[in-house]
């Protein structure tokens, strides 16, 4: 699954630094940033502000991936999770530094910076967030 260069590049702020958006009308936080608040609709247009997540969250659900695209061959098996961030918004991420059998729903995790993939040996390398157990 190769990613065109600009397609990844334009998401760098969100992928590196968890930059989402906050609705200037109701205060709801979204990640990645949205142009329209799903709760406020038209009222929110032009009021969405850039907002950086704190990087801490809780595991809502998870799975261990055994069959993966070739990009992830080196890491199999690996853990994926849906994490609810302290700001309330949820995201999908890989969990690292933890054995599959030790992952629990409700576990506290924090964001870290890892290599996500690359466009082959000669291509651009993509970086972004993965999560690890808090304090690890």
């Amino acid at each position: 699954m190769t990613q065109a260069i600009p397609r990844f590049w334009r998401e760098i702020q969100s992928r590196y630094n968890l930059v989402g958006s906050k609705c200037g009308s109701c205060g709801k936080v979204d990640f990645p940033p949205r142009a329209v608040c799903p709760d406020c609709g038209r009222k929110s247009i032009g009021k969405m502000q850039s907002f950086k997540l704190c990087g801490k969250g809780t595991v809502v659900t998870y799975t261990t991936i055994y069959d993966a695209p070739s990009q992830f061959d080196m890491q199999k098996p690996y853990v994926m999770a849906i994490v609810e961030m302290d700001e309330g918004v949820r995201l999908t991420t890989q969990l690292i530094n933890v054995k599959p059998e030790d992952v629990k729903i409700g576990m506290k995790v924090q964001a870290t910076f890892r290599k996500l993939g690359q466009d082959g040996e000669a291509g651009v390398i993509h970086y972004g967030y993965k999560f690890r157990p808090a304090g690890s």
């Binding site: 699954m1 990613q3 998401e11 990645p32 809502v60 659900t61 998870y62 799975t63 991936i65 069959d67 993966a68 695209p69 990009q71 992830f72 890491q75 690996y78 994926m80 999770a81 849906i82 995201l91 999908t92 991420t93 890989q94 729903i105 996500l116 993939g117 993509h126 972004g128 993965k130």
Partner: peptide, 26 residues
């Protein structure tokens, strides 16, 4: 699925359904 915010991070199609299954079990 969402290529930019699910697949890029390693979530496979089966993986996304597996996470629903895990939550249903929970």
């Amino acid at each position: 699925a969402d290529q930019e915010w699910e697949s890029v991070f390693g979530a496979t199609f089966a993986g996304l359904y597996a996470m629903m299954a895990r939550r249903h079990m929970h």
